[in-house]
């Protein structure tokens, strides 16, 4: 059951958009705006779901994912990870998949409503 969500997103408009609509649906959402903070937050507390941007200041989303679920083992075994990006280059996405994200979504294709549908489908 997904209840707590960590949103790692540096774009204020986009971050606020997700946070606002997710909170309205009753999710508990924490929002951080840079990679380093995101990594700290992800390990400090167990979130049910992490929404991860790729192009981030300080630390890229791909690096965060490698830290969290990389060769050093799965530091977040109880969390799901959805990668959200507008920059779907092949390398990057393949890395994301290899680093075992639970989904890879193009932000421009996903409105908050669709994001919520996807999160609901992850519940099962």
């Amino acid at each position: 059951m997904i209840k707590t969500i960590l949103c790692i997103e540096d774009d204020r408009f986009i971050g606020e958009m997700y946070v606002r609509s997710l909170r309205r649906k009753g999710y508990e959402v924490d929002w951080v705006v840079n990679g380093a903070e995101g990594l700290r937050a992800a390990v400090a507390k167990t979130y049910d779901l992490i929404l991860l941007d790729i192009m981030l200041p300080e630390q890229q989303g791909t690096d965060i994912l490698r830290e969290l679920r990389g060769p050093a083992g799965d530091k977040i075994p109880n969390s799901r990870v959805l990668v959200l990006t507008n920059f779907d280059q092949d390398d990057e996405s393949r890395l994301a998949m290899q680093s075992k994200a639970d989904g890879y979504l193009i932000k421009a294709d996903i409105t908050p409503k669709k994001l919520i549908e996807i999160i609901e489908s992850l519940q099962n």
């Binding site: 774009d11 408009f13 986009i14 958009m17 609509s21 421009a108 996903i110």
Partner: peptide, 12 residues
């Protein structure tokens, strides 16, 4: 895509 995300999202 950035602005489009925001426009579509906030319209939603």
């Amino acid at each position: 895509r950035g602005p489009i995300t925001v426009i579509r999202g906030y319209l939603d």
